[in-house]
């Protein structure tokens, strides 16, 4: 499904940023593929793939910059890497070694929260707490489409609105909550729901990292300027099952799956930047080498 972005891009990425967007997307794709391989051979227990959501994650994370604390859900692996979580640190909890493999303070990327939507209230409370102490109060919180049905999400939006908290809600609407389609989860868009709470919002397709970057840069400017919350709803595809334990073929049509794979944002963006001459094969080989090294490191650590 192609959605029209609700307003024009205000902050376009420059060429360095474009290459950075692509590099992060390619790296996390490599990590995600390696995670699947490791899971298949029994080296890690479970993996929640982010394939199809890379543009949304990389675009939003680069747009807000390194300062805001990030409260993720559980599949924001691209954001994690971009923030400086090491690949083996990211993998640790999926291998049963810990509940969180990285130092959340160091990277300001806080632990994954597996109880849906619980992190939304933490994010707003953290932002209020930071503001009360005169510190950086810009906070980003990620949530899936299904999790927005949880009461905590509504409570968090209301709290953020009432307190005028500097919180960016990023809803990655991948169309599915395990097997429940988003159309059966809600009657209106999240963007529209946010406005009902008094939160400015935008809804946009998540296949193009530049569009995501621009929308989130605008959202960030709104948050910093108004000291008020904002919600972006990013429409993405879910290429893999909910997790490695999920047989999505049981509830998705072959057509749907084929279309989602064909709309892969990573290959599309790589082709686009190549076409525009922003990256060449030497550049792509360089990223490939980086990915290969990362995968070797993961194999050494986990296989």
């Amino acid at each position: 499904m192609v959605l029209k972005s609700e307003s024009a891009h205000a902050t376009d990425p420059d060429d360095d940023t474009r290459r950075s967007l692509l590099r992060h997307m390619l790296v996390v794709r490599g990590l995600d593929e390696e995670a699947h391989r490791l899971q298949k051979q029994g080296s890690i227990d479970l993996w929640a793939s982010c394939q199809g959501q890379e543009a949304a994650q990389v675009g939003s994370a680069l747009a807000v910059g390194p300062d805001p604390a990030v409260f993720p859900s559980y599949r924001e692996h691209a954001v994690a890497l971009l923030r400086g979580v090491a690949p083996d640190e990211l993998m640790a909890q999926w291998a049963g070694r810990t509940f969180c493999g990285w130092d959340p303070h160091r990277v300001r990327f806080f632990p994954y929260t597996l109880v849906l939507a619980a992190q939304t209230l933490h994010a707003v409370g953290y932002s209020i707490g930071q503001r009360l102490q005169g510190r950086e109060d810009f906070v980003v919180v990620y949530i899936g489409d299904g999790a927005t049905s949880e009461g905590d999400m509504s409570e968090a939006m209301n709290l953020a609105a009432v307190e005028s908290a500097s919180v960016l809600f990023v809803c990655q609407n991948n169309g599915w909550a395990i097997s429940k389609p988003a159309e059966e989860q809600m009657r209106t868009s999240l963007a529209e729901r946010a406005r009902g709470f008094g939160i400015a919002s935008a809804r946009l397709p998540g296949d193009d990292p530049e569009a995501v970057f621009s929308a989130c840069a605008r959202a960030a400017a709104h948050i910093r300027g108004e000291r008020a919350p904002y919600l972006v709803e990013i429409q993405v595809g879910r290429i893999q099952g909910h997790t490695t334990s999920d047989a999505q073929e049981a509830y998705r049509t072959p057509d749907d799956l084929a279309r989602t794979r064909a709309a892969d944002p990573v290959t599309a963006y790589a082709a686009r930047l190549s076409d525009r001459g922003l990256v060449d094969s030497a550049w792509l080989d360089g990223v490939d080498a980086e990915v290969r090294e990362m995968r070797e490191l993961l194999v050494k650590e986990y296989a």
């Binding site: 209230l121 953290y126 707490g129 009360l132 409570e155 968090a156």
Partner: peptide, 8 residues
């Protein structure tokens, strides 16, 4: 929930 965030 917000108290958890404040405590962090």
């Amino acid at each position: 929930g917000q108290a958890v965030g404040m405590a962090i």
